[in-house]
Simulated assay, not measured.
Amino acid sequence: MRGRLDGLSMLVTGGGSGIGAAVTLAYLREGATVTAIERSTDHAAELRHAAQGLPLHVVEGDATAPDVVTAATDVAIAAGGGVDQLTCCVGVFDHYVSLRELSVAELLAAAEETWRLNVLSTLVAVHAAWPALRDARGSVTLTLSESAFHPVGGGVLYGSSKWALRGVVQHLSADLAPQVRVNGVAPGGTTGTRFSGLHSLGRGATTVDARAGRDERIAAGTSLHVKPAPEDHAGAFVYLADPVAARIVTGVIVNSDGGHAPAAAVNRPPGSMEGDRR
């Protein structure tokens, strides 16, 4: 039985855990050859094990480093004959930090780290993969967040970086046309992501799942009252990567957030963790 992505070569940055891993595995199961960049040796090993012999190639390294992304692009070209699709899943969380809580030095360091990882890394990856994507008439899918649409799911640093990615989708969809399609997926709160915080604020080892009661807050903040897992978002990525089903889709963001519940944001007390989502 043919998969939707049979014969395609995919490059995934941040593909070793959470949504990135779920998307990588979904691509593989749909018939693609996937090259994933993953910084953590442990996560890379887990991904290889989960792939169960499917055509996965893991490049261990920092997906924000141009030389690593260039090397991974070369691996994808060698493994799959080109790069048909680039998916960017690298990100860092700000744990709702407020400007009121930061010194100027902390603000500068935290902003640089957030915007470098969440925004600049995407531009670096697209820059490295562009020639191969152009030749393949391929596509790019960026990972946003509900924070790109509503003041929930993070603080001003995280939220502003995801708002910036909305602009990246729009501008790149025009810049790379007509050869390459550019779209995004904006997940809402998700369980089991191991999504970690800012090293510049000493929170690099802290994940969003560490907070008690987070799953219940996620469900309460959605219209469908659901607690999405990483796998629940993978279908949106597969659709956007499909060169047949999504042939005329570009500049689009799919909101896989369970249906935003505005009351959850309106009723959130200032400085509280209510509405803790991504």
Rank of each mutant, 00 (worst) to 15 (best):
G153C: 04
T191N: 06
T191C: 06
A79L: 00
R194Q: 15
D84L: 13
S103P: 02
A128N: 08
V156K: 01
K227C: 15
T114G: 13
G138F: 01
V169Y: 00
R214H: 14
P151C: 10
T87E: 08
H260R: 03
G258H: 08
A111L: 13
A205T: 14
G188N: 04
A205V: 05
Y27D: 04
L142K: 10
R137S: 14
P66Y: 03
G80N: 07
D42C: 00
H233Y: 12
G53Q: 14
H43W: 07
E60R: 10
T206A: 05
D276P: 08
N183T: 04
V244T: 14
M1Q: 14
A212E: 13
S98E: 10
L176A: 12
D175Y: 04
A132N: 02
V180Y: 00
L172F: 14
G188K: 09
V266T: 01
P55A: 15
V97L: 07
G221S: 15
G184T: 10
V83S: 05
V169A: 10
G221C: 15
V23M: 05
I77E: 13
L144H: 08
T250D: 11
D84R: 08
H171I: 06
L224Q: 08
L240S: 05
S256G: 07
R268Q: 14
L54E: 03
E112I: 04
M1C: 02
V226N: 03
E231W: 06
A263H: 14
T206W: 13
I37L: 15
V252M: 07
G153E: 07
F93R: 08
D175Q: 05
D42W: 02
G61A: 12
A32F: 05
T141L: 07
Q179P: 07
G184Q: 05
D209I: 01
T143Q: 06
A79K: 06
V244A: 07
V75K: 00
T207N: 09
V252E: 01
D232M: 03
V249R: 12
H199L: 06
V104M: 03
V238G: 01
S147C: 05
G192F: 12
A32Q: 03
G80Y: 04
Y239R: 11
V169G: 09
H95I: 11
A129L: 08
E30D: 13
V238K: 01
N255A: 10
V238A: 09
V238F: 06
V238M: 02
A236F: 05
A265Y: 04
G213Q: 01
V92D: 01
V12W: 02
A125N: 05
